[in-house]
Design a binder for these strands. Sequence first.
DNA 1: CAGTGGTCTAGACCACACT
DNA 2: GTGTGGTCTAGACCACTGC
Lengths: 273, 273
Amino acid sequence: MATPPAVSIDSPVKDAGNTIAAPAGGDAGALAVPAFSPLYQQIKTLILRSLQAGEWKPGDSIPSEVELAARYRVSQGTVRKAIDELAGDNLLVRRQGKGTFVTTHAESHIPYRFLRLLPDTGTLDEQGPAERHIIECRRLRASAEVARLLALRSGDPIVQLRRMLSFGGQPTILEDIWLPGLPFKGLTLELLSGDQSPMYALFETRFGVCMVRAWEKIKAVSADADAAQWLGVPEGHPLLSVERLAYTYDDAPMELRRGIYRTDAHHYRNELS
Amino acid sequence: MATPPAVSIDSPVKDAGNTIAAPAGGDAGALAVPAFSPLYQQIKTLILRSLQAGEWKPGDSIPSEVELAARYRVSQGTVRKAIDELAGDNLLVRRQGKGTFVTTHAESHIPYRFLRLLPDTGTLDEQGPAERHIIECRRLRASAEVARLLALRSGDPIVQLRRMLSFGGQPTILEDIWLPGLPFKGLTLELLSGDQSPMYALFETRFGVCMVRAWEKIKAVSADADAAQWLGVPEGHPLLSVERLAYTYDDAPMELRRGIYRTDAHHYRNELS
DNA sequence: CAGTGGTCTAGACCACACT
DNA sequence: GTGTGGTCTAGACCACTGC
């Protein structure tokens, strides 16, 4: 399987030396556009496309460096640099002696890769795994606000979820989640409730959607009646509001999430450099 | 200047092939300890030491790759990999055609490298630069808690600062800062107040202390009387508590800081991947 | 053992910045 | 032009994994 398609973004020519050809034939057509990129960047893009297209799924191993070098007709070192950067972005994981694998939210030893909340005292696996409870799952139409953030149009179909996470029996996080309706056709409360894996792992296996990076906006807020009831704190209690926008391989926003965190016994941890 | 000291951590031997010698002579002594590291790691450590020793200061350029390769008696590619990693950790900055520079908190186009608070609307330079006001600067003795976090002994001399940051005239951040007394001998309220640059830049130039990375622990809290007064909010108002422990090159904790942030018009931003 | 990623080298050439 | 970092190659060998 797989005959080498060779590099074809900037149509690199390697006749004499290692030059990269002009973006368009001859000298007509687009000018002024920078449009040149190093070979390894082009390889990176090609690999990204294969990930996006689902040629290699989360958890799978991708072809070896030697194979990819042959496929793209470049040296192993060039493939290596491309993979290095993708690994640096946490899209791939290298394992010496075994191969290079597509990063997944499942079967990872970090069950909640994007969750930055830690207990003030104790280890990561403190009181065993988090208890998860789906409160509701509704299909409705995007508000202007949600549509804007998810790059949809007002009124487009969406799925709205609400769930609660508890640690050691203590309700700690109340989350509202908005997902675009089309990619998540078939997502139901039953499906979510009957699943043991992290939500993002379910998204990968059932919907082929891989959350790759995200932004979070954090504020301190007062508990309203609703949050107070779910989290078991008095109204007005200070809580962390964590708004997350998560993206897939193609940098398309695929999830909007707003979590309300109790921070009595936990804290949001962040590393700076 | 500078005659090659050559690599000497693991005493790499490159007689035939590129082997790295055993950590200790013969086969006696420590066994079971892994203790081997690739050449580029050793180079990384040597560069780190030069940074630590102040051989190259923040903002300076370090020797070129070719020079370093000669100095350490390795190939340019090996130096390159070492520098790549240090650049990845934001300790160095590469500038094509110019050289490699030691990262600094001064003259950066990001005036507050470690500050993650952004305005909800508008750009980064929103209302011009932040107004800074030093409220107090006292020299006292470390409490058990502060000593533990700063790796000091209870009762060791420390400097305690309090300051306020305002954006567009709005008091937004109230910070208490604890510094070890010895490295910061000579730090006074006058020095701080008369300085226009970010505090970390002052630390670099006046005390040779470069903050390189940090952890932050974030919680939602209620404004106490003190914070309420300084920040102009009612008591009980939800605020962000941001506790930071900052480290220098040698991974020694060098600053403890606790900030109280208003998040009415701003938010703490974080990227996940 | 063969296959994978990891390290190291040496040399060529390109892109950029200063002078 | 000279010097810097940036890209690319080709080949050798090491270290780990699993058959």
